[in-house]
């Protein structure tokens, strides 16, 4: 049955309420726990297997070996990659924040932070190098 003005009580009820819209960026915006932000590398944890490079949807990750530390002891024979250090280059402009890199990493070397304000004026600033 059609009733004129059926919507009016709701509108009047809302008049007395404060606005729902938050005045971001003047008010801090909080993301929930488990938010998928920027991938980060735990220092020294990477073993250079490149599983993340292989599975990255956006092809946004590069893993490069760092020059060997001259003071480090020689690696034991038969143990691959021990003592070697790697850095991750992340192209944040390409990253789609799917967290596949963190899932596929056998050493849990990659984790995602909760940073969401990652916009930048230049593309170069979005090329992150992590060791």
């Amino acid at each position: 049955m059609l009733k004129a003005g059926i919507f009016i009580p709701e509108l009047l009820g809302n008049l007395g309420q404060s606005p729902v819209t938050r005045v971001y960026p003047f008010v801090e915006s909080v993301v929930p726990e488990g938010f998928r932000g920027t991938p980060r590398l735990r220092p020294g944890a990477c073993i250079g297997c490149k599983a993340c490079v292989r599975d990255c949807t956006a092809e946004a990750i590069e893993i490069e070996q760092l020059p060997p530390d001259p003071n480090a002891p020689p690696p034991e024979p038969g143990k691959k990659n021990v003592g070697k250090k790697f850095k991750m280059i992340l192209y944040l402009d390409r990253c789609v924040h799917c967290a596949r890199c963190a899932d596929v990493c056998p050493k849990d070397a990659i984790w995602l932070d909760e940073e969401f304000e990652v916009a930048s004026f230049t593309r170069d600033a979005l090329r992150l190098e992590m060791e």
Binding site: V31, P32, E33, G34, F35, R36, V96, H97, C98, A99, R100, D103
Partner: peptide, 19 residues
């Protein structure tokens, strides 16, 4: 957003279940 980690692209599926 709370259960998946993102508002739009949930990425909750994986082959053989959910993440």
């Amino acid at each position: 957003e709370k259960i998946s980690g993102n508002r739009v692209n949930y990425a909750i599926n994986t082959i053989g279940g959910v993440r």
